[in-house]
Simulated scan of single mutants.
Amino acid sequence: MRALTWQGRRSVAVETVPDPVIQQPNDAIIKVTSTAICGSDLHLYEVLGPFLHPGDVLGHETMGVVQEVGPEAGDLKVGDRVVIPFNISCGHCWMCSRGLFAQCETTQNEKTGKGASLFGYTELYGSVPGGQAEYLRVPEAQFGPIKVPEGAPDERYLYLSDILPTAWQAFEFADVPEGGTLAVFGLGPVGQLTARIALNAGRRVIGVDRVAERLDLARSYGVEVIDLDTVDEIAEAIFDLTSGRGADGTVDAVGMEAHGSPIAKTAISAVGMLPDALARPLTDKFAIDRLAALIACIKSVRRGGTVSVSGVYGGEVDPMPMMEMFDRGITMRLGQCHVKRWTDDITKVLQKDGDLLGVESLATHHVPLEEAPAAYEMFQKKQDGCIKVVLKP
């Protein structure tokens, strides 16, 4: 089959690789019909390369049609149309029974000290081949795949794989009361969906970014936007819009590669140039992140408010404004999304008339799988008005 593979820093290629096969009784094989490039994939493209190997198949936002099932794949059957959550969870362990699917103890990566295995996301999370390919092997198929109805376009349900439940969790974790204000930092795909979910729930939303196309898109849905390049101090701007109090909740939808920290950028780039044997421990145990977005979220939330972090971070020695966080009584909630915890609630919205969350129009680019390398570069450089890319094998 053809698949998008990692080859090195800022280098990916579509290659012919072996077709996946059933390895465990609860596996399934799907023929991929749509697979998206996620902002998290760009971390592999740039920062997390030391934990990848040339030839690793990337991708964790995938849907398709079941081609083959193992004898213990539950009620899944050949021909089912399914979306595949990016985290691989069993549904029955201690963590899963509490809705903590991203911490599944059956697929947990104890050797690297990380949570549940993820599709297409480094040796830290199991080195499981990803879905930017013609076919995908799905472990724990008795629980993971989400069956979706025939007839609707793929984009109506594709984002159930990751960014839609991630955005839903980001809003839920922010704990914004009715009539309250949510400030979303980063208006990429997750930020856009977080804002729309909050608006659909009747909250006021302030969106923060510096990319014109993202600001315009958010504004078209009713978000009050702030262009980072037009304000001296973002926290002051948000306080001005909230009677001097700050937002009830803030969402960091940016993560480790936020702009605004030249020293951290230099450190990250330097580590990325080291041989893997040196870069792995530095990245895993001593790395620092570019914290501009997170610090802004902390400084923009009101006293007693909540900071919700959906952006991916990788550092362990990040400096945090602990005195301010303590004095202001801030709550922080963060972590990988527990996809299936939110599936039922999201599906109810998706099944309503009118595409309330705008998922069918979110992707700005639909390209063949063979053109994925150019799409990665375009997405990473924010060229051509790119908001979201969907690949078609």
Rank of each mutant, 00 (worst) to 15 (best):
S300L: 02
L334K: 12
G131W: 03
P262K: 14
V12R: 02
S269T: 15
V317Q: 11
R303I: 02
C38Q: 05
A293S: 12
L52N: 09
Q24H: 10
E140Y: 02
G202D: 07
T33Y: 04
V21H: 11
L391P: 01
L44C: 10
T107W: 01
N26D: 15
S161R: 08
K77E: 10
T343P: 05
C93V: 07
I163D: 00
E257F: 07
R245I: 14
G311D: 07
E105R: 09
A195F: 05
V176P: 05
F173A: 09
R204W: 03
R2P: 07
L42V: 06
A277L: 11
G315R: 03
S300R: 04
D252Y: 10
S97N: 15
A296D: 04
G79D: 09
W6C: 03
M256V: 09
G207S: 09
I84D: 01
E178P: 04
V271R: 07
K77N: 03
P18R: 15
G39E: 01
R303L: 00
V307K: 00
K31I: 12
Q103L: 11
I197H: 01
G130D: 02
V317I: 08
D227K: 12
T194F: 02
Y125V: 05
V205D: 03
D27E: 13
L160V: 09
C38T: 05
G115H: 01
L76Y: 11
L199G: 06
M95Y: 08
C386I: 13
D353K: 15
L215V: 06
E150H: 07
L4A: 13
A363K: 06
P319M: 10
G188Y: 10
P393I: 11
A28P: 10
Q169H: 07
C297G: 05
F379G: 00
A133N: 13
T266K: 15
P321M: 12
M378Y: 01
V14F: 06
W6N: 04
T306Q: 01
G191Y: 09
I298W: 04
W342E: 09
A3W: 13
Y121V: 02
D216V: 11
C93N: 09
C104F: 03
D284A: 13
Q7C: 08
D227E: 05
K348R: 14
C38V: 10
A36R: 07
G354H: 12
G244H: 12
A152R: 05
E46K: 12
P129S: 05
G272H: 01
A174E: 01
I22A: 07
A73F: 06
N200A: 10
E15D: 13
A372D: 03
T306F: 00
R196V: 09
G202I: 13
V349T: 14
P177G: 08
D75V: 08
D232S: 14
S127A: 14
R203M: 08
A270Q: 12
A247R: 07
R328Q: 02
G49V: 07
Q192P: 05
G59F: 00
A270H: 09
V12M: 08
L362M: 13
A201T: 04
E68D: 09
V254E: 05
R219L: 00
E371A: 15
D41W: 00
A293C: 06
L58P: 04
G144F: 04
